[in-house]
């Protein structure tokens, strides 16, 4: 499955970067959402993808599966998802604020306004 995910991740990265390069500031937000998802998937998929073996140890002391999914990248991605949301909300509000003050949504014009 991993090679397919590699291609999917490449596609998400490409779309994210394309959106981030646009001049319209609203598109930047979409780009941010895409790129954080791409990064999360990358970490998750690179560690190897295992089916039907969540990193839980049976409560009743029963035997564990031979191979279980790697818990560490899961822990990393879990916080990354939440942090990405925090950063996104910050960015979105920042952009909204910038738009209100400057009154343009073109990144190129924003450069020249020293307000």
């Amino acid at each position: 499955m991993e090679p397919i995910m590699a291609v999917v991740i490449g596609v998400i990265y490409a779309t994210a970067i394309y959106m981030m390069l646009r001049r319209s500031i609203v598109k930047l937000v979409i780009g941010l959402i895409l790129i954080s998802n791409a990064a999360n998937l990358l970490i998750f998929a690179t560690a190897g993808m295992t089916r039907d073996a969540p990193p839980l140890i049976p409560m009743n002391g029963g035997p564990m599966a031979e191979v279980i999914a790697d818990p560490l990248p899961q822990a990393l991605v879990l916080t990354a998802i939440v942090i990405a949301f925090g950063v996104l909300s910050f960015a979105v509000v920042l952009i909204r604020r910038a738009y209100q003050i400057v009154g343009v949504d073109d990144m190129d014009q924003m450069k020249d306004t020293d307000t």
């Binding site: 499955m1 500031i25 609203v26 937000v29 959402i33 998750f44 993808m49 295992t50 089916r51 039907d52 073996a53 969540p54 990193p55 279980i68 999914a69 899961q74 991605v77 879990l78 998802i81 939440v82 990405a84 949301f85 996104l88 909300s89 979105v92 509000v93 952009i95 909204r96 738009y99 949504d105």
Partner: peptide
């Protein structure tokens, strides 16, 4: 692929993201 914690988190965050974007993005051009 055996990551129930991640799946739940992702779903919840998606919901909240939509709420956030509705609140902010549609004030934008």
């Amino acid at each position: 692929f055996s990551a129930p914690d991640l799946a739940i988190t992702q779903l919840l965050i998606e919901t909240l993201t939509v709420i956030l974007l509705i609140l902010v993005l549609f004030r934008m051009p």
